[in-house]
C-alpha cells in the first residue's frame, strides 16, 4: 500500500497554490490557510458567529454568514476587507449560491424561512416558509431546484427556483444538517445528525433510493453524527464528517457502501477540497483545528491550529 502511495503524494504535492478559508464560530474570525505551506497566513475579523462560507463563482468575493449579526457579509478575498453586508433575514446559518452567480439562497435558522437575495441589487427577492430550524442549503447544477433542510421538522424542502414555491417535502431522519446534489444533478444527498444516517433521493421523483448508516468500532452509535459531506471531483466517492465520533467516512457513491473511516480532530463539521482534489480540509469544532486528509490514501496527514470552534470551509485558487 505505502509503496504506491508515497510516489503519488510526491507527484501531487507541487500543486497550484490556493487557500482554504475557515470560519471560526466562537472567535468571530476567518482563518486563511495556504494549501502549499499549510500555514495560517491571515486571520480576518468578521461579524458575530460566522458559519456558512462560499466564494462567488469567479472568486472575486467571498460570502460569510455572520449568524448573530443577522447578516451575510461580502468580503474582498485579496484584502480581507468587508465590502458590504447583504440583507439575509434573521440568523443566517448556511447558504448556497445559484449557478447564475447572482442569487444567494439563505437558511434563516431562527425564523423557519429561506431567504433569496440578489447579490447585485442587494435586495431580498423572496422569502419561503420552510420547516423549523432550516440549515442545509443546496442548488441543483442546472439551477432549477433549491433544497433546504430543517433540523426540527426533519425534512428536505424542495423549492422551485422559478416560482420560489415548495413542490415537495421529503422526510428524513432526525436533525438534517446538510444537503448536496450529485454533480450530474440526478441525486440529492441529505445528512441526518441525530438519526445518524445519510439519505439519498432520486431527484426526478423525490423518492428515496438509499439510506447509508455508519458503524465505528469502539464508538457509541449515538455519537456517530453525520453533518457535512463532499463529493470527489469524479463523483465516485463521498466524504462525510461524523461529528463527535471524530471520524470522516468515505462512501462509495455507486454502491452506497461505507468504505473507510478516517480519524480527524474533535467534533468535525464541514470540509473543503484543495484545488486539484488531492487533499481535503476538515473543520474540527471542539479541538479548534483543521485536519488535512490525503484523498488518495484516505489518511490524515496534518493538523493545523485555527481559531475557536472552526465551522465552515471553502477553497479559492490564488493563481
Amino acid at each position: 500500500m505505502k509503496k504506491i502511495l508515497i510516489p503519488a503524494l510526491l507527484a501531487a504535492s507541487p500543486t497550484m497554490s490556493g487557500e482554504i478559508w475557515v470560519t471560526n464560530e466562537h472567535d468571530d474570525t476567518v482563518s486563511v490557510i495556504d494549501t502549499e505551506t499549510y500555514e495560517v497566513t491571515r486571520t480576518i475579523e468578521v461579524g458575530e458567529r460566522p458559519r456558512g462560507i462560499t466564494f462567488s463563482k469567479d472568486y472575486s468575493v467571498v460570502y460569510i454568514c455572520a449568524s448573530d449579526s443577522d447578516t451575510v457579509q461580502v468580503v474582498d478575498p485579496n484584502t480581507g476587507e468587508i465590502l458590504h453586508d447583504l440583507p439575509s433575514g434573521e440568523d443566517p446559518e448556511q447558504f448556497a449560491l445559484h449557478p447564475d452567480n447572482r442569487h444567494l439562497y439563505i437558511a434563516n435558522e431562527d425564523d423557519a424561512i429561506a431567504t433569496v437575495v440578489d447579490v447585485e441589487t442587494r435586495k431580498v427577492i423572496a422569502q419561503i416558509d420552510v420547516g423549523i430550524e432550516p440549515e442545509g442549503m443546496a442548488i441543483s447544477p442546472d439551477g432549477t431546484i433549491a433544497i433546504t433542510t430543517s433540523e426540527t421538522t426533519n425534512m428536505a424542502h424542495w423549492i422551485n427556483t422559478e416560482t420560489h414555491e415548495l413542490f415537495a417535502n421529503t422526510l428524513v431522519d432526525s436533525r438534517p444538517r446538510h444537503a448536496e446534489f450529485t454533480h450530474d444533478g440526478s441525486q440529492l444527498w441529505v445528512s441526518s445528525e441525530i438519526g445518524g444516517t445519510v439519505t439519498v433521493f432520486n431527484v426526478a421523483d423525490q423518492s428515496e433510493i438509499a439510506k447509508v448508516r455508519f458503524e465505528i468500532t469502539g464508538v457509541h452509535p449515538d455519537n456517530i453524527q453525520p453533518v457535512g459531506f463532499e463529493f470527489t471531483e469524479d463523483g465516485e466517492t463521498v466524504f462525510v464528517t461524523l461529528g463527535p465520533s471524530n471520524h470522516v467516512a468515505t462512501i462509495n457513491a455507486k454502491t452506497f457502501e461505507v468504505e473507510d473511516y478516517i480519524l480527524v480532530g474533535r467534533r468535525v463539521w464541514h470540509m473543503a477540497f484543495n484545488d486539484n482534489n488531492t487533499e481535503l480540509y476538515t473543520t474540527n469544532g471542539v479541538s479548534g483545528d483543521v485536519t488535512v486528509i490525503d484523498v488518495a490514501s484516505r489518511t490524515p496527514i496534518r493538523t493545523i491550529k485555527v481559531g475557536r470552534f472552526p465551522w465552515g470551509a471553502a477553497f479559492r485558487p490564488t493563481e
Partner: peptide, 19 residues
C-alpha cells in the same frame, strides 16, 4: 463495519406536492 439499506418511496418517503 459497512451497512446499507435501500428503501423506496412509500409511506414514510412522502412525495407530496404542495399545497
Amino acid at each position: 463495519m459497512k451497512t446499507v439499506t435501500r428503501t423506496f418511496c412509500g409511506l414514510f418517503a412522502l412525495c407530496l406536492a404542495a399545497p
